[in-house]
């Protein structure tokens, strides 16, 4: 079990934990943070692969992920604030207006 495998396993674990968090937590803000955690897991895997392959493509992708994450949070937080204003709660179970 070498360094690369450990790091990739960590990346998978972070991604899985983030996914679990999205599914099991009620709080919208916590869910958002779990998504950030998933992005971090992906970033870690990218850096690991880049390191292993001695290539800078992975690093470029990581940079792009940073940008996406920043853009995402910049829109997500105002949306959450709006949601809370309309329903007075952060509990995701209350938000089921689009039920089929």
């Amino acid at each position: 079990m070498d360094k690369t495998q450990v790091l990739l396993a960590l990346a998978v674990a972070l991604f899985a934990l983030g996914m679990i968090g999205v599914v099991v937590r009620r709080n919208v803000l916590v869910m958002l943070m779990c998504m950030e955690l998933m992005l971090n897991g992906v970033n870690l895997s990218l850096v690991t692969f880049a390191h292993q392959a001695a290539s800078n493509v992975g690093a470029v992708l990581v940079f792009l992920v940073f940008v996406v994450a920043a853009a995402e949070i910049a829109i997500a937080i105002p949306i959450v604030l709006l949601l809370v204003r309309s329903k007075r709660t952060l509990d995701l179970a209350s938000y089921s207006d689009l039920k089929g």
Binding site: M19, V22, V23, V24, L92, S96, D97, K99, G100
Partner: peptide
């Protein structure tokens, strides 16, 4: 399939997972 559309984001996320 419409029954699946229960309006819960977390259920959808679970399905994706």
């Amino acid at each position: 399939l419409g029954r699946v559309q229960i309006g819960s984001l977390q259920f959808y996320a679970f399905l994706v997972l």
